[in-house]
Amino acid sequence: MIKRTVDHTSVDEIIDRYDGEKSFLIQVLLDLQAEQHWLQKDALSRISERLEVPLMRIQHIATFYKAFSLVPKGRHQVHVCTGTACHVRGAGRVLHTVEELIDIRPGETDLDLKFSLETVNCLGCCALGPVIEIDGKAHGKVTSGKTAEVLKGYE
């Protein structure tokens, strides 16, 4: 288990952005996820304390939405589209290349916490297929070679 020193200041700062209002719980969690790439238990306890929301409820929400992760995620989220159009245009090969290059399977994160890999079912831009999306930026018409080039651009 990765143990980090408990740093409440960043959590508190996020909570203060929303004036400690409990109805902003999901927004607080989203901000925390964006900043730290995962939701640490200590942080969730702190949020529970400050927003006066039972920890159990926060845990329910944090496990309900796919946007949240209770385990560390990489700095960059790689989404390989395996929807029908991308699949037909060779998403399988692209996914295989990505798996080889960063040495992880979908759902996993590499040891350097640099990349997390997920497959998605459609990114809504089938004309650009096969598509990979990294941190929300879509890269269209990717090939094995182009995939390597794109991934190289991330630190």
Partner: peptide, 8 residues
Amino acid sequence: HAVGFIDR
């Protein structure tokens, strides 16, 4: 709030 639902 000792027990609750998780996941979906």
